[in-house]
Design a protein around this nucleic acid. Structure first.
Lengths: 219, 219
DNA sequence: CTATATATCTCGTTG
DNA sequence: CAACGAGGTATATAG
């Protein structure tokens, strides 16, 4: 990794045109050839960048980074304040434990949490436009499709509505109830869900983790 | 901005739990207090980060970054290979010329490009769930709502469908035609649009820029 | 402040 | 390779 702090102007031509007036910034060149330009705020997003694969042609006072798609990043360098290089080696990578997968696991184990008397038929129940997270039957034997999201937004409602359309074509399932389950459901999504006849359940992950086990032992 | 290259392990606890085993990485501390951890690949995305507002407590061998939401980033440092600091000052910021705004401008000037004889009524025509990009009238005097996207995807179709629902409540507009315009429209979106009675138009930005002017001078 | 839409989104997985 | 979905999305803007 090469780190350069320089007073520079930057121009990007590609999916859009963008220009950065002259100022002092960090230029980061990584081992995979990628280049990014950082200002002194915002942890996450570079001001400008070029992802791998790309090629850097560094002349004094002017770097041109281009990629096979024909996008170019031109860095015009006025003054270099720092220029260091260090080999980092390969990174072992991030181990993460996601929320949506966990939610699905917990709700699959405790569907009664979503609606009294719900029983799981199958996780990832297939339709021709993709799998429904949970297919259940309620106490009355009616089929219930459950879409699980970390955050309930309009997309999730529309997605579930499309699944319901599909599932309703199956005589053995019709008519199918729909439940959108999420840690938090946005008002707009609530409204749309109601209009589509879809129920919304906000799930408290902590309570589910604790109470879920209790329920299992109780019934 | 402070740049540290260190052999370190990283743990994030917050919206999820994540762990980075010990390896050599770049730690970047910005003037706004934000912290990011970079490996030697990927220009854009840090391995881990904490956005402003947050607070860094740096003891030797252990940095703890926490934010008001109770999320924490813990960096356990084995060895420091580089530690430099440099004041960059405020950045003048990026000047960009986006695609969607440009598309809207061009199509507003040349609605006939979307459909023969289309005339613009108003840009950003308001509805109670948000503004429609363009409201037009076609040659027959029928109202036409146009949704403009850089890329046409399912979301865009659903969004336009919701607008059409709304606009159709207005007796002076009903029945309203819908056109989804984008540089490229994905097959799934095409299918859904057709099912919803929405027309799709793929717009070649280059041709529009050139031909748009020709059209204006011709008619 | 919350809610919404956008992004040179990035990044994975899947067909 | 394209398409689709998720993201600790981040980020800007409107209400």
């Amino acid at each position: 990794m090469r780190l350069v702090i320089a007073t520079c102007a930057v121009d990007y031509e590609g999916r859009l045109s963008a220009h950065l007036p002259t100022a002092t910034r960090l230029l980061m060149v990584k081992a995979d050839g990628s280049v990014s330009v950082h200002s002194d705020d915002r942890a996450y997003k570079p001001l400008n960048w070029m992802t791998q694969p790309c090629e850097l042609r560094a002349e004094p006072g002017r770097w041109v980074v281009s990629n096979p798609k024909g996008e170019t990043l031109t860095i015009t360098i006025d003054e270099v304040h720092l220029d260091v290089q260090h080999e980092l080696g390969a990174d072992p990578g991030l181990q993460k434990h996601g929320v949506e997968a966990q939610l699905q696991e917990l709700l699959a184990a405790n569907p009664g949490f979503l609606s009294q008397g719900l029983r799981l038929v199958r996780r990832e129940y297939p339709t021709d436009i993709g799998p429904v997270d949970l297919l259940c039957r309620d106490a009355a034997g009616q089929a219930v499709a459950v879409e699980i999201k970390r955050r309930g937004e309009i997309d999730g409602v529309e997605q579930l509505a499309r699944y319901l359309e599909r599932l309703d074509l199956d005589g053995r399932l019709r008519p199918v109830r729909g439940i959108l389950a999420a840690q938090r459901i946005k008002p707009q999504a609530q409204v749309l869900a109601t209009a589509r006849g879809i129920e919304c359940v906000e799930v408290d992950c902590e309570r589910l983790r604790g109470a879920g086990v209790e329920r299992l032992t109780l019934f």
